[in-house]
């Protein structure tokens, strides 16, 4: 291989234009991520995929792979900081895992399992966020929203509907809905939207699907997200090349 870089001591091949994240995942090395979905443009906002390149921190999902660079990913220091990022997300919103329908399929939760997070550490902020259950088929639970912006991007770029946007700023940031009332029921959202499939947490859910798969038998109940994620990424790659 002509183009390779070192990732935690392992030589990773890459094609020009690939990001560190793409190349690593293709080579079977998992890099934690929440706001990134390889089917869409990277966003680098959750910062969970932060790696170091020649000692400097960057988001792997947007960092171009460059030959001979020295990348660190799975180190105790980076994983400790990733755990802190997750703890921040957990105290920022209201995440009641025991009563959440997404439990077991949730990337926030499973990433936290994977990184060994056993507590939320910080004081809970207990924000007040309005849920939107106005739509007959779709529910928006803002308590669980981690502001990854995936639904915003996919609804705008793929569905061409721009149903969602992030409003306000800083800690007051929130997801808003494109309709005269601001409610989903008056929007053009549909269960078939691609945007409905990308929420990493239980913020955007389709109604009447609850507990079709029992708790304990869900994706990340059976295998850690690192395994599931790599399999999905590689399956996607093969699917595309067929």
């Amino acid at each position: 291989m002509e183009n390779t870089f070192s990732l935690d001591g392992k030589e990773i091949p890459f094609e020009p234009g690939q990001t560190v994240w793409d190349a690593a995942m293709a080579a079977g090395v998992y890099i934690p991520h929440l706001c990134h979905n390889p089917d869409y443009e990277p966003h680098s906002s959750c910062r969970l995929c932060t790696i170091t390149v020649n000692g400097r921190p960057f988001a792997a999902c947007t960092q171009p792979a460059v030959a001979d660079q020295l990348v660190h990913n799975n180190t105790p220091e980076l994983n400790a900081m990733r755990r802190t990022i997750l703890q921040m997300l957990f105290v920022e919103g209201n995440h009641y895992c025991p009563s959440c329908e997404k439990s077991g399929n949730c990337k926030l939760q499973s990433s936290a399992y994977d990184l060994g997070m056993q507590d939320n550490h910080f004081p809970q902020l207990f924000p007040h966020r309005e849920p939107d259950s106005s739509h007959p088929d779709v529910i928006l639970d803002r308590d669980r929203c981690i502001l990854c912006g995936l639904c915003v991007r996919v609804s705008r770029d793929v569905d061409k509907k721009s149903i969602f946007a992030i409003a306000n700023r800083g800690i007051k940031s929130e997801l808003i809905v494109n309709s005269p009332s601001g409610k989903l029921v008056d929007s053009k959202v549909s269960v078939d939207d691609e945007a409905m499939k990308v929420c990493p947490v239980g913020s955007l859910m389709i109604k009447r699907k609850g507990f079709e798969v029992p708790i304990g038998q869900r994706d990340y109940d059976k295998e850690p997200i690192s395994v599931v994620s790599l399999r999905q990424f590689q399956g996607r790659k093969e699917g595309r090349h067929e």
Partner: peptide
């Protein structure tokens, strides 16, 4: 803080 990234949005 603009609120885009987790560390700044929550950390501040």
């Amino acid at each position: 803080s603009c609120g885009l990234c987790t560390p700044c949005r929550v950390g501040t």
